[in-house]
Design a protein around this nucleic acid. Structure first.
Lengths: 208, 208
DNA sequence: GTCTATACCGTGATAGAC
DNA sequence: GTCTATCACGGTATAGAC
């Protein structure tokens, strides 16, 4: 915050490194040894900043959940027709996924083995439920197809949206083409969110 | 195979148990101790049947991949209009996911830390590529929307389809209602595959 | 085919010097 | 704030008796 060059770690900067490794090897597949090598400091130095592996996980999923729940309080999510709110939340969820990619990635992969993980799963279900309620309202308005259960529709919608974490890679900061195997959006920037919404709501087929 | 009651383990029956635990705790989060307790035999007895944890993983993802690649050789996937073949493969993928749920679940969660995992990832990409080619053909026919890159469309389609492993639970054998938190399809049986196809290709919105 | 006992190593975490 | 040294534990895997 104060110094220009951060040469020493804070819990924040350490988190950045840790989340990257967690996403690479999986949380359970990551040892403190792995983290220490990635951070360039010794194992014991890590314990100077955080209480252990699980605190890093807690901080990471917290950040992801804050981003997602924040959407539900935005004007576009609370005002207007249900169908418009649904599309808004969908679009914003894609945007939050892109903006907080590593944190959300970790959140979506949590299994529930520890207390922090179970808490994360519970809050995720809460978020899904809130969105499912929105879908139900839009269906009641006659704006979403009546032949499909809206809980199922919500699951499939999130399945599509959340899959972003498996393949989306942010454009590199220096205009260089990203050749990391997983290509980046290739849609020009925020266009991706719009594409996802159109595909989810209007379908893959040629518009009739 | 020969005896009616299997009281002793074979690699096959052991695999059934192991895959369940892997999916529950994550592969890396599962120790041989966990497996031995779930199987009701000692750790060392497991090594009598399989060479170790990774062989169990290899067998599991193999089975999943066989199921998926099998689809591409079925008549419905090789004959007819591209758009029809795409819908067929999509529907069948859902069905294979349901039929081989635990195995495919494990496949879809593989991270790439070991050789077996990297091989699985590679074959998955191969399958995705084959389907992406089908989508491109259907787009060239003018049957899929021209405003979306078909690689992106394939990813989102698989995102939706593959999400099944996160929430679909097979109906219980004894007709009892499934109250396991994650409700089962609730769509009557094979209807689910049809619903996914309709949602993916025609969208969530009311048909115009 | 299953067991107990054990080898051996990597794990998360701590102590204490600098 | 970082290090080296060390601990107790749990991990995979093996040996050999029954």
């Amino acid at each position: 915050m104060t110094t220009a060059k951060r040469d020493t770690y804070t819990p924040e900067t350490l988190l950045t490194v840790a989340v990257r490794v967690f996403n690479d090897r999986g949380y359970d597949g990551t040892s403190m040894e792995h983290l220490s090598r990635a951070a360039g400091i010794s194992k014991s130095s890590i314990y100077h900043h955080v209480s252990g592996k699980e605190e890093l996980l807690r901080r990471a999923v917290s950040r992801a959940l804050d981003g997602l729940f924040g959407i539900l309080d935005e004007p576009g999510a609370v005002r207007g027709q249900a169908i418009e709110r649904v599309e808004y939340v969908t679009r914003r969820t894609v945007e939050v996924l892109m903006a907080e990619l590593p944190y959300v990635t970790l959140l979506l992969r949590v299994r529930g083995n520890t207390k922090a993980e179970r808490w994360a799963l519970e809050r995720r279900r809460e978020f899904d439920q809130r969105v499912a309620d929105l879908l139900k309202a839009a269906a009641a308005d006659g704006d979403l197809r009546a032949d499909v259960d809206m809980r199922l529709a919500t699951r499939l919608l999130f399945g599509m949206v959340n899959s972003l974490v498996e393949w989306y890679r942010p454009p590199s900061a220096d205009g260089t083409a990203d050749e990391s195997g997983h290509p980046d959006g290739s849609d020009g920037g925020d266009q991706l969110a719009e594409t996802v919404v159109r595909l989810a709501f209007d379908g893959l087929r040629t518009s009739r």
